[in-house]
Design a protein around this nucleic acid. Structure first.
Lengths: 203, 203
DNA sequence: AGTTTCATTTACCAAATGGTAAAAACGGAA
DNA sequence: TTCCGTTTTTACCATTTGGTAAATGAAACT
């Protein structure tokens, strides 16, 4: 239930996973890494902590070093719905809020203990100016994430609850093992009671 | 049931809607328009015609001048599921197939009589070289479309069938009026019988 | 160990949805 | 117009899912 940024900057080795990941797609000179690192910070989250709250404006892009986050909203009845799970080595923000500066209609919450690197929008804009390839890279990765979100949702279309759960176990087993059952139920569009029943009848 | 490209090139006025649309976001010099037009063609589709079939490779980007298309797949039981509806003034392709040259896992089908402008990938790559702003513009519009798809799907999450239908009527009324009920049912994840029942009880 | 708190499972019943099949409505072609 | 093929509606019943509430289980704290 914590929104305060327990930001830490001291230890540069913490930023390694980000550059390791980015270098899968594009070589980044060490000199550039040094500059980019100056702009980064690090946050540790407990399950339930918020990275961003619905209604506020996304001013950061996050890179998940370890853990799982959920993109969530409250529906009219006050029930929390999980739109997506994202895990380590993925970039996360609420894109339309980040791009256009409008209030986010979704929140970002840790689904288990999670560590993230924080890339402030302000810093990114400076870095984009200095390293144009960085914008291109981040745009490409952002598009990949959007495509991934769509694909994974489409896989559940038209399937009944039990099939959706089995698909989930196959497609995202690492997540299934780490997050609460009510998160999974709200992600699959069923109640926790139904999920429990399904698990009993699956074995 | 027609996949053959009834392509027509003759009448340049047919391409006007594309440029009118693009110019909402970025001014395009008339001289450039002349060059770009050389690469375009035009196709008319009847309801049910395919723009792209699952398993083949997306080599074109389409701009919908008029009408509605559905992004669809067959599930294991052979039932056709509608992932998305897209209407006039939207760009359509199967993005991961188009980008990476892999077989598409979805088909694109006209949901009513539809006219599209065809932008071949080969031509686009040439044009991107000559007009770098064009790549930037198309990338931006592509991202917008992805975001739109995600947002509209999220709105249905966790809602029951009747609420999903009412949301659909509110959010996409122009589409509701033009496409078959079985398309809508498969889009909302219900049977046509259920949709019929819901309509009776709505009025 | 005992207590508290929270997550998960179970049970029961009501409501929603699916499946099959038949009837009705619609649209196009002769 | 009539006929034909397709789409939509209806009806019936079986199955799935939701809602409420209580029981169980697991983890954290004293």
């Amino acid at each position: 239930m914590d929104t305060e940024p327990h930001t830490e900057r001291q230890d540069a080795t913490r930023f390694v996973p980000l550059f390791t990941y980015l270098r899968l797609f594009k070589n980044i000179p060490s000199a550039d890494v040094d500059v980019i690192q100056q702009e980064l910070s690090y946050r540790s989250l407990a399950e339930g902590d918020y990275l961003l709250k619905e209604g506020s404006i996304a001013t950061n892009l996050f890179f998940i070093c370890d853990g799982v986050v959920r993109i969530v909203t409250q529906n009219e009845q006050g029930r929390e719905l999980t739109h997506y799970f994202l895990k380590e080595n993925q970039l996360v923000t609420i894109l339309d809020s980040f791009n256009r500066g409008v209030p986010a209609r979704e929140s970002i919450r840790a689904a288990c203990p999670t560590q993230v690197i924080v890339l402030p929008k302000r810093s990114l804009l400076l870095l984009y100016d200095r390293f144009p390839y960085l914008k291109e890279l981040i745009d490409k990765l952002t598009q990949q994430t959007l495509l991934y979100k769509i694909q994974i949702r489409n896989a559940y279309l038209g399937e009944d609850a039990m099939t959706r759960y089995q698909q989930f176990l196959i497609r995202q087993p690492e997540i299934a093992l780490r997050v609460s059952l009510q998160s999974i139920a709200s992600y699959l569009g069923i109640t926790q009671q139904s999920l429990s029943r399904i698990r009993r009848n699956s074995f």
